[in-house]
Structures are given as C-alpha cells and as structure tokens.
Amino acid sequence: MSAAIPAPRTSRGWSFPRRLALVPIGLYALVLVALPNLLLIVYSLWGMEEGRLVRSLSLDNYLDILGSRVPRELLLRTILTALGAALLATLVAYPMAWFVVRRLSRARLLVLILVVVPLWISYLVRVYAWKIILGDQGVINTALTGIGVLDEPLGFLLYSRFAVFLTLTYVSIPFVFVAAYAALERIPKPLFEAAADGGASPWRTFTTVVWPLSRQGAAIGFALALLICVGDYLTPALVGGMDGTMFGNLIVSEFGLANDWPRGAALSILMLLSTGLLLALVARITRTEGVLE
C-alpha cells in the first residue's frame, strides 16, 4: 500500500486557516448524517398513541420488542440467515478469486467483468427472476417433473427460507468476489515464491501467507454481503412467503401499514446494534498486522 502522500503544504497561499475549508463538509455531515441518526434514536424513544406521535422519552418500544417472541425470533433468524448466506457466498467467491488470481492470466479481467455485470441488472429484477426459476411451474420444477425425476414439483423451492437463503447468497457472491479478488491481487507474487522457497507446500503457503494477507479483504466482502442480507426486505417479500419473512419486513410494515415510526426506529436501532456487533467481531477475528507495499 502506498503511503499517503502529504499534500504540498507550504506553497499554497491561502490566507484563511486551512481548516475552515472543512466547514462545508462539516455542515453536510451534520445535516445528512448526524441529524438523521440522532433523530432515529430520538424517535425510537418516542411513542405512538392513536395515530399521534407522543414526544416523551421512554424505553417502552425496546422493552416491548424484546419482550415479545416474534420480533426476537425474527431478529435471530434474520441474522442467522444473513450470516449463512454471506458465509456461503464467501466460501464460493473467495476460492474462486484465489483460483483466478493464481491460475488465470489473460482471462482474469474477463472473469472479473463477468462477475460484476449482473450488478448492472436491476437488483429487484434479479431477485424476481428467482421467483420465476423456483416456482411450482418454474424452470427447475418443470424440468425435473418433465424428465420424470419428480412426480410433483418441489414445494420448498419457493416461498420458503430456503429461497431467501439462496437468493441472498446469489446477490452476495459478486461483492465478496470483488473484495477478495482485490485483496488477493495485491499480494506481491514473490511472497508465494518466498514461501515455497522456505519449504512451504501450496497448502501451507495458503495458510501462512495468502490467508493472513487477504482475510481482511475477504472480511470486507463478507461484511458488505452481511449488510445487504440483513437489511434486505425485497427478497423475503418476493420469494420468502410467510416462512421467509425477515426482520426488515417488520420495519417496513411499521413504516407503511402500521404507521408506527417510533417502533420502526427502535427495530432499526436493534438491527444496527446487532449487525454492528457482529461486524466488529469479524473485524477482530480477521485483523492482520503489517503493511503491504
């Protein structure tokens, strides 16, 4: 990694203190970042009564949410599903990126582009496509019953937690791949040779050099995937059915139908806290010291 190049300081003849230049950024951050987050917290402490906002601070929303079974279980299930999908995506994308970096040379860029292209196609529609593929008369079931493998379509394919899990894995793979690829490609090639030179088999080269130097990148991809999966309410709504409902759907319904924004805010904060905790843990586990030059 190249060291940050200090900007030439001395030769710019600005007549006012340089730090004043930060003021516009400060204002922007105040209005579009600090204020929304602050208001989210404040709202989560307010309440609703007969459709009217009650502006008095209390922890009632939180106590109520954590006290009832459904949101609690939904949060846990959402986090487990998101974790699982992000993990599976990492297990697919990381080895793939490693193979591409190590074994392909001319085809490398092509593979990278082919992985990224699906991201250009509307997210919503990619998710909807799985509905077409997994349905009772979808591509898979029709094919399987057509060739006589099945008598009846597989019901669990669509409107299930399986469908949500599969779709979330699907949308996660490109993100993990790009992050892992970027990290793996940055490892200087001579380090692989130095490891082999020191007597390390390919597997031990991987465990002692490649993984420690790329796990932070893999973790960034994993974290991105986790963030998408945790907060996605489109996928459960499209392919999840009743079984596949996730925490995000709960928040959206508080925003829409139920029109209880304070409760929605409290749910959001709980989601933020739990994912934040998880990501901190991931960052902790994958920390590596040292600087790549």
Binding site: P36, L227, G231, D232, G248
Partner: peptide, 22 residues
C-alpha cells in the same frame, strides 16, 4: 469527517431510508 460522511454507505439501506424519512 471523512469517516462521518461514509456512514450512510455502511448502514443497512432500510435503516438509512427510515432515518432520512424521519
């Protein structure tokens, strides 16, 4: 400040959406 302005990118989309709506 640099870290602050990046926050909306690393927050789940629906949390950002709700906080902005509020």
């Amino acid at each position: 400040l640099q870290a602050a302005i990046v926050i909306p990118v690393v927050v789940p989309g629906l949390v950002l959406g709700l906080s902005l709506a509020i």
